[in-house]
Amino acid sequence: MLELVIFILLLIFALIIVIKSADIFVDNLIDIGGALGISQIILGVTASAIGTSLPEFGSAMIASLSGNVDMGVGTVIGSNIWNIAAILGISAIAAGVIRTDSRGINRDSLMTLITGIILIVFMLLGDINWIASVTMILLYLFYLWLLIKSQKEYKKGKDKEELANEKTVKQPVDKRKVLFVIIGLAGLIIGCRILVYSGVELARMAGIPEMIMGLFTLAIGTSIPELVVTLSSAMKGLYELSIGTILGSNTFNILIGIGMPALFMSIPVEKLSLTFDAPVMIFVTVLLLFLVKTRGKLTRVGGIILLATYIAYAVIRLTVLV
């Protein structure tokens, strides 16, 4: 019993380290980019999506490299289902409405859907190997290029005066920021290692499959940053940041969270992942698109439907399909 409590505390401690390290890493990396005059590349919603997804990516990477591949894949797919069905569901219920009428959201939701379908296609072809990995990473780079392009177009539309004020000037890189990037990265690696270790041990003690541990405990834990950003921005009326963070995170989780580990090792496909978890991930994405397309916004009723879908998925997965 004492051992169980210790590992639960260790898991919580590791989660806090991972999330804070990801914050320090992204924050200082963007500042260094700013000093080099390239801060415009990763801005706003994109920075939020990547920053909030680093815990999932780190956990998936460390889990896969340490031989717990099921847990890694489970964390990514579980996070993506949780992000859309539960986080957006909870946020829409709390905020009353999340408006989704911007062009950026159309682009990001389409990309999230395409990404999920690509993952299923690779899963159907067998293990996720380096060819799939390279394809996914290249696709993410293409998506980043699209984001940068649209950002430049947006800037063109701004006043010249405003543009002149925002012009980034190359400055010497602050060495302390480089040090913080390294500390953030080290914290992320160590935190993820402890997180995966405690997750594996807890799964062993409770007698549950590692996949389940990844799909729920690690997936929900590593998605805390998405939850706080999405919920608070929805309540403040910053809808693009709210929904954009979730859609960007889901795309990053699959293309980089699975694509990057697959570069180092072939990732075996578990049957239930292919026949149930991944299809549910696609289903909740399509459900979200349907809910927002019919009314141009995600309403409280839509939020209840999404959250109910997540509860139904969790009940079926944890009771019927274990």
Binding site: K20, L238, L241
Partner: peptide
């Protein structure tokens, strides 16, 4: 401009929220 954010909100996101609001 409501500046309060929950614990574990990314610093850059907090700045972005403030900027947007």
């Amino acid at each position: 401009v409501e500046t309060s954010v929950p614990f574990l909100t990314l610093k850059k996101v907090k700045e972005l929220m403030k900027e947007e609001l």
